[in-house]
Design a binder for these strands. Structure first.
Lengths: 296, 296
DNA sequence: CCTGACTATCGAATATTTCGATCTTAAATA
DNA sequence: TATTTAAGATCGAAATATTCGATAGTCAGG
């Protein structure tokens, strides 16, 4: 039972004539005959009595009219719903590193939610590898990486910016204010870093390895807010994105070190899978991020 | 948007796999790909995200699932209704001569209605030509003719019986009891007959014309009950089916005349059009008539 | 007794659907 | 690490279905 036949049937029933239905639908009359016959054979019952080239619905035919109309209503309704603007609601799953998550929620999400209250967002944190994996398994709608510059033709990079990063230490450190320091000058100092193997920490380690410099962090912890607060109370050194340290720098509690021989490129990238269907909510979210200051 | 694709879609959505749906539905996997693609192109939206050979419903897809299920329900429901016994209800339009109508209602209809109360019957009276016309225009479901024997391959004769008929007159008539009368013996008597040109009256006239005998009826009237009551109070003669005169004959008020040279064949036939779809009600009615004494 | 209007039917042309083979990628397994 | 398995996409060929046009038969109206 195909929809085409059903729709033809409704028109025939309405017009009471194969010929008129053919004209209306742009078919030849024989096609209408065929379609109706096909329906009748499939359903195993007569839909029209044909007496003297005049058709009359049978009881079964009358019953089918009602079903066919309901089916038509449904399909029309659905097609109608497609032309309408998609509703701005639904779920978005965003995965970011720990530090970004915190920043996002504080500086963007609250405002976003005010503007689009019916979009529900789930934030999850993960490291770069896991985030990519989640994209590949369609478990994350968008991810934000803080890592070396990623490019892959399977992914769409919706927004990216180089992330300013600095070696940073207590404002009272003996290194504070010194110009043109080398990484070797501070390599033996106590370091506090984010977790091994993740994000910019991994890029950092790779860069050190290139220069055959070894650093032993005295503390490794993912939470960058904890790192900065430890820095403020110690003489340790860390390597962090500016957006993490900015409050402490502005408050004069921490200061940047002028390390001139470590040029590490860290990028913040908003990425989704190329096959991802962008719901209106998702588009809106991506647009929103696009318009805001990405590097906080 | 064809039902086939819609049904495939529901299965794919349910199983979450093109391949599994293909196995279930007996298609090849490429067919499923094609069908879903066809749907997507027609609707102008993605129904599944394909990321790493794993499919996930999009929002639009999820919406379609609900519509498609409703459509499936409807069509299944209708097909289901076809396998079920048809309901014994609905309209039947029966057209008969005046005399039969009266008889039918008195001796059959009341009982029929008791047995099948939800079948609604409309009785209409007409002469043979009009009845045939009504069959041809699908305005009558069945007709009962009292006429010469009809046969036409466009019609189905559900039941037929020769209708015993007699010349009949008042029991006190001077012809009462006389044997081997000729039609010529009574040709100049006053006749009361049914209307000219109708049913057995027409056959009767035709037969007389063959013998070049003219009869002038003093009264022509369709209602046979009136004819018999006039006969009982006069010395007129009529030519009527036995079922009409039986009560009066039994009561000794009328008597048959033994006319031996008029052999008129009148048949009572239950006829419907060969293209008529026999609803259960109609079948039941025809069966009922078939089982009852047709010639009352 | 034509003519026009209506449906049925048939063969031919055309479209569509389906399949099988092959490709690509990812995950599972050895 | 290499291999196998599994999933979906794609493409051309084959099978199938649909559509049309022509034709026939029938009835109604002029």
């Amino acid at each position: 039972m195909e929809l085409r036949n059903l729709i033809t049937f409704t028109h025939v029933a309405e017009l009471g004539s194969f010929t008129k239905a053919a004209e209306l639908l742009g078919y030849s009359q024989s096609t209408i005959s065929f379609q109706i016959k096909q329906l009748e054979e499939e359903l195993g019952c007569l839909l029209f009595e044909r007496i003297n080239h005049t058709i009359t619905l049978t009881q079964r035919g009358r019953e089918l009219v009602s079903y066919a109309h309901q089916v038509r209503m449904l399909t029309d309704e659905f097609k109608e719903s497609l032309t309408q603007e998609e509703e701005l609601s639904g779920h978005i799953h965003i995965v970011t590193p720990d530090s970004v998550c915190e920043e996002m929620i504080h500086s963007h999400y609250i405002d976003f939610h005010r503007k689009y209250p019916s979009v529900s967002i789930r934030f999850t944190t993960a490291d770069t590898a896991d985030m990519i994996d989640m994209l590949d398994h369609n478990e994350a709608d968008v991810i934000i990486t803080l890592d070396s510059h990623t490019y892959d033709r399977d992914y769409v990079i919706a927004k990216e910016e180089r992330l300013p990063m600095h070696f940073v230490t207590n404002a009272n450190s003996r290194f504070a204010g010194r110009k043109n320091l080398s990484i070797r000058d501070i390599a033996s100092e106590p370091f506090i870093l984010t977790e091994y193997g993740q994000g910019y920490r991994r890029v950092f380690d790779r860069e050190l390895a290139k220069k055959s410099i070894g650093i032993t962090p005295v503390l490794e912890i993912g939470r960058t807010d904890i790192i900065t607060s430890v820095l403020a109370q110690s003489d340790m050194i860390s390597f962090l994105p500016d957006f993490v340290t900015k409050p402490m720098i502005d408050a004069g509690k921490l200061c940047y070190l002028d390390i001139c021989d470590m040029n590490i490129e860290i990028w913040k990238q908003l990425i989704y899978h190329k096959n991802k269907w962008l719901s209106k909510s998702l588009k809106t979210f991506i647009d929103y991020i696009g318009k805001t200051e990405f590097v906080g």
